[in-house]
Amino acid sequence: MVGLIEYELTGADLGEVRFALSPMNELALSLRTWRDPGRYPLQLPWLQRTAGARAGLDSEMLLALTNDALWTPDFLTPRPWSPLARFDDELAALARTPLEVVRDDLAEVHPDPGTRPAPLTGRTDRVLSRITAALAAYWTACFEPWWSRMRTVLEADIVFRGRAMARDGLAAMFSDLSPGIRLVDDVVRVEVTSPARFRRSTAGEGLTLAPSLFTRSATVPISAAQPPLILYGARGAGTLWESDRPAAPRALAGLVGEVRARLLLVLDSPASSTELAVRLGVTPSAVNQHLRAMRDAGLLTSARHGRSVLYLRSGLGDELLRAGS
């Protein structure tokens, strides 16, 4: 069954569409890959690399936080307020979730008390405490070692969307997020794989857009009482776990060198020096030297986003790449 969520942008809220990211959202949504890994083939390398670490976690509780339809409780995917959110802050906020919210959100995901997973039964305060502890251990074992790389991809997506919105307008930006998202007049329409249907205004709250590595289509709160939020699939997720060593055009490599030619080739979308070092298999210090030289020569542009500097091929770089191919 396909549901429909509609967010009505009114007045000044047309300018209040904001981008943010959430470590907690990513952690919660990643539990879908445990239950149905075949639906998330891009994340299989990460699942394989973390198999040993996951074996020592509270798997019974973590698996209980999704259902067969791959829903997660809304309190585990709070609306992020900034691209700079920190997991420790979000975990502390999770521990303070009102118990009635925890109880109601868990009932949305597992509505039949008779079949509710055992870890979610009993006193709600104890359930919340166990959820918090399980997620904290999961973060430390399976996310923290990879988060810098994940964040780079998410931040690069935000920069790309911001530029697209400034260049092509709000409607074009929304249509590129997901096939199930459209802006019709001043209403953002989101098709969802649940029976949820509601329409609500974003007046006074705005609409937050958050890229995710663990959703294949648009994900939104299943309750109209939750703040307006759309999670969408981030660009670049397909290259997240791969080493990218493309063959540079020989003429271009002879002119600027092999590494710089490969950098020009891959920088058709924003990336940080850390991500580029992993993708190309060279040291971060070497990549930084090449990036600075290429930027000074006008072949790249750069912009700071949060704690990262993201690089992108410039118009001159495009021309050089075409000429050297």
Rank of each mutant, 00 (worst) to 15 (best):
V2T: 15
V2C: 01
L9F: 11
D13K: 09
L14F: 12
G15K: 08
V17P: 09
R18S: 13
A20M: 11
S22A: 13
L27R: 04
L31N: 01
W34C: 01
Q48F: 08
A51Y: 10
A55H: 01
L63H: 10
T66Q: 06
A69Q: 15
L70Y: 02
F75G: 03
P78D: 08
P78Q: 10
P80G: 04
F87L: 14
L99S: 03
E100K: 04
V101R: 15
V101L: 11
E108L: 13
L120Y: 08
S129N: 05
S129L: 12
R130G: 02
R130T: 06
A133F: 08
A137N: 13
C142F: 06
L154E: 12
G162R: 15
R163K: 08
A166K: 13
A172V: 14
M173Q: 12
F174E: 06
I181K: 02
V190A: 13
V190S: 14
E191C: 03
T193G: 10
P195W: 08
A203L: 12
T208V: 15
L209R: 01
R216T: 06
A224G: 11
A224Q: 14
I230G: 07
Y232I: 12
G233Y: 02
G236R: 01
A237N: 06
R245G: 09
L255V: 04
L264Q: 06
V266M: 02
D268N: 07
S272Y: 12
L276W: 00
A277H: 04
V278N: 02
V282A: 09
A286E: 14
Q289S: 13
Q289Y: 03
L300W: 08
S302K: 10
H305Y: 14
G306V: 14
S308G: 03
V309A: 06
L310H: 11
L310P: 12
S314P: 11
G317F: 10
A323R: 14
